[in-house]
Design a protein around this nucleic acid. Structure first.
Lengths: 110, 110
DNA sequence: TGTCCGTATGTCGGATCTGACATAGTATGC
DNA sequence: GCATACTATGTCAGATCCGACATACGGACA
C-alpha cells in the first residue's frame, strides 16, 4: 500500500494505527481493508454491468442511494457484511464471491 | 436447508421471514447464513488445529471467551465481518478465505 | 464426591453501522 | 445559460453488534 493509496483511504474515513502499519508488509488490518475495497469495486462493476443506477440498487437492497455510494466507495462506515449481502442480492454465487476474494477474474460474474 | 437445520439455527437466534423462505430453493438470506456458518466452522477448526482454547483466541482478538464461543456457534449476533477479521488474525490468506467460501478443502489452511 | 478446565448461555452498556434525508457535485442535452 | 439524471458527501437517530461479566454445563481425573 503506497502513500497515494493511503491518502485516498484516509479521505474515505479510514484511520491507521501507525505508519509502519500500512506501509508495512501486510498485517491483518491491511488485508481486511484491501478485501473490503475489492468487494466494493466488484459491487460497482456488477451494478454497472446490470445497467442499474445506485438508486435502483438501493431499492433492491431496501437501502438508500447515499448508502450505495458509500458502499461502492469502500467507506469505513460500511461493513464487509453489508457488501457481501449486497453482492448476494445481486445474485452472485459462492464461487463468484470466492473469485473476488482470491483476486481472480470474475469469469461470468452473474 | 432441512427442518432439522432450521431448528438448530433458530436456537442460535436466527429468525426466518417465511416457511418457503428457507425450505425454498435458496434466496440470498439462506446463502448468507450458510456462508456465515461455514466461516464459523472454519474458525473453530483453525483454532483447534493451533491448539488454542477459546480464551487464548479471545486474547488474540482482544475479545472475550464468550464472544468466541458465539462466533464459533454462528450466532446471529455475530457478524460476517467479525468472523472474517478473526480468520485474518489467525493468519489466513485471501486464498484460504476464498477456499472456505467456495466450500473447498483448506489445503494448508495456515 | 469435588474441583479443575474448557465451553456455552444470558445479559447489558456502549460502540459501530444503518437507512434516511438534505444537499452538493458532475455530466449530458437543450 | 438551465434542466435533467446520476453520483457524492454530511449528518443523525435508531438498530445492530461488540466486549465484558456472571454463571451454567460438561468431561476428566482423583
Amino acid at each position: 500500500m503506497d502513500e497515494r493509496k493511503r491518502k485516498r483511504l484516509e479521505a474515505r474515513g479510514w484511520k491507521f494505527g501507525s505508519v509502519p502499519e500500512f506501509l508495512g508488509l501486510s498485517g491483518e488490518e491491511a488485508a481486511y481493508i484491501e478485501l473490503k475495497l475489492r468487494l466494493a469495486t466488484s459491487l460497482r462493476e456488477v451494478r454497472q454491468r446490470r445497467r442499474l443506477t445506485q438508486g435502483d440498487l438501493a431499492k433492491l437492497l431496501r437501502s438508500s442511494q447515499s448508502r450505495v455510494a458509500k458502499m461502492e466507495a469502500g467507506e469505513s462506515s460500511v461493513s464487509l457484511d453489508r457488501l457481501i449481502r449486497s453482492l448476494l442480492v445481486l445474485g452472485l454465487s459462492n464461487t463468484d464471491l470466492s473469485r473476488i476474494i482470491a483476486r481472480r477474474r470474475p469469469a461470468s460474474a452473474a
